[in-house]
Every structure is written in C-alpha cells, then in structure tokens.
Design a binder for these strands. Structure first.
Length: 266
DNA sequence: AATGGGACCTGCGCGC
DNA sequence: TGCGCGCAGGTCCCAT
C-alpha cells in the first residue's frame, strides 16, 4: 500500500519521465476513479496541457499543468502509475506528446483522481499534519504531549503527522522498541526522540530502496520496490523476531492489522 | 472531543 | 475441485 516512500519514489520517477511533456489525449476506462469534475470536463481540461511541475503532499501526488489546473492522484491501496503503459488493466490512460501513455491502474477502485483549480484548497490537503521531515525532534515531542491515544493509530493519523501508513508505523515502532498500544503521552523523552529518529530513518531507507512492494505497489516502470525484504515485523506473524527470535504477534489496533514483537517492544 | 466501526472495493488464500 | 467467507488497508463518514 503506497505510503510516503512509495509515492515519493513515483514522484521522482515521474519527474524524469514525463515532466515537460504534453498530454495529448485521455482515455477513461473506468469513470468511477475520476472524482471531479465530470469525465467530459476532465478530458477537456487535460487535453493539450503540459506537465509543468510534479509534487507530493504526504501520500498525494500532484501534477501541476500549464493551464493552471492540477491533476491530483491518491493511490490509496492498489493504485499504480505505470509508464510507458500497456493499457491492459488501466482505469485511465494519459496519452503523451512522446507517443507513449501514462497508465493509471487501480484494482480495487479506491483511488481518487481529480482535476482541480487549486490543490491547496482540497479538504484532504488542508487537513494534513506535518510530514516527519518538516519538523524537528522538539516539535515532535511537543505534539505527543497530552495525547492519550495509542501510539500506533496516532502515527497513522494524517491530521497528526502525515505520510506514515500501517506498514511504516509498525516498522518504526519495532525499531524504537515501543509497544504499539502504549498511550502516546506515556513515552519517555528518550523514547520520543528515538521514535522520531527511527520514523525518519525507516522512511529514508524505504525511499532509497524505492518503496515496499506488498499488495500492488510498483514503481513507475512497473517493477517492484526493493524494501520489503528489510521489513522486520510487517506481515511476519509467527516468524522469529530478527532480534530475539520470539514469534512476531499480530493484533488488531484501530481496525488495522498490527505486527510487533511482544518481547522487544515494551 | 476522541474513539470506534462500517463503507468503499476486488482478488486472494483459506477451510471444508 | 469448488465454493463461500474473511481479510487486506487509506480515507471518509457516522455514531457514541
């Protein structure tokens, strides 16, 4: 499931592959993924536009266009962007001035594509908390103060801190040796500092390896990311902890599968 | 106010 | 072999 490292990977690859190219046509195979405006306006608003700038806000991908509009894409769980595309499973195909297509795929139809005038005004964007790389340890510690919520759901709350999802929240907590159910405010100063450091380290390493391919995520080229082999707890239920050999446990927290080592994470 | 659960979806893996 | 069920999770929405 694409989280910050996966979306950042795609963003960097898009910059190399499609920046400066013109969208010459759009083929909408499944209208449901176009959340706004109408499919007709969507096609019309994109045709002839040049991709001027590519940016990422948390897990949202934004392509700024020469006509002042922006294409905002949230991959949710199974969204993919593939270039050059083959069109076989695409929900939307963008034909580019180089004769190739940029394919948007999404098996489960959760993803959201929008063509909008002002992406900064999106409710989703306005509700985002800071990304881990935008703050320092002092601010992170202050944010955790008085928070009674369990630490893992809090890390996944995009209004609190943005970019982490289920996978990287679990990995960062393991590396910090913190139990996912701990109330946030119960963390010691040292633990808060360590957690902040490990969040950034986990995300950085995942970006270096071009993301984790679990479920459907692929790089722009269509090949998988390389970080899954470094996961220490995610999807490792029953397998020995890489530190102490205790079997990794899986529980449900905030409705989400939560992996942790019952011995290392206190 | 904060928290929890369901809805949205489809494909896969499991048990019988 | 085949079928039905549960599960996967990012975000929104609603109820408590």
């Amino acid at each position: 499931m694409p989280e910050l490292p996966e979306v950042e990977t795609i963003k960097r690859e898009l910059e190399k592959a499609v920046l400066g190219k013109k969208i010459t046509g759009v083929c909408v195979h499944h209208p449901k993924v176009i959340r706004e405006p109408s499919v007709e306006k969507f096609k019309k608003g994109l045709s002839g536009a040049v991709i001027k700038n590519i940016l990422r806000k948390a897990k949202l991908l934004i392509l700024e266009l020469s006509n002042g509009k922006a294409l905002a894409i949230h991959l949710k769980m199974t969204g993919q962007l593939v270039y050059p595309g083959n069109g076989r499973t695409s929900r939307v195909s963008f034909r580019l001035s180089d004769g190739k297509t940029l394919d948007f795929n999404d098996q489960r139809l959760f993803a959201e594509v929008r063509l909008i005038d002002d992406w900064r005004a999106l409710k989703f964007v306005r509700g985002l908390g800071p990304e881990p790389f935008e703050i320092g340890p002092g601010q992170f510690k202050a944010m955790l103060e008085k928070k009674k919520t369990k630490i893992k759901p809090l890390l996944m709350d995009q209004a609190f801190i943005s970019g982490l999802g289920n996978l990287y929240a679990a990995e960062a907590l393991f590396r910090s040796r913190i139990n996912p159910e701990r109330p946030a405010q119960s963390l010691s100063e040292r633990e808060k500092e360590l957690l902040f450091k490990e969040i950034k380290a986990t995300l950085s390493e995942a970006i270096e390896h071009k993301g984790s391919s679990v479920d459907q995520y692929v790089q722009l080229s269509g090949s998988p990311g390389g970080y899954a082999r470094y996961h220490k707890v995610y999807d490792r239920k029953g397998k020995p902890c890489l530190v102490c050999k205790t079997p990794i446990k899986r529980t449900t927290l905030g409705g989400r599968g939560t992996y942790f080592c019952p011995r290392c994470q206190k």
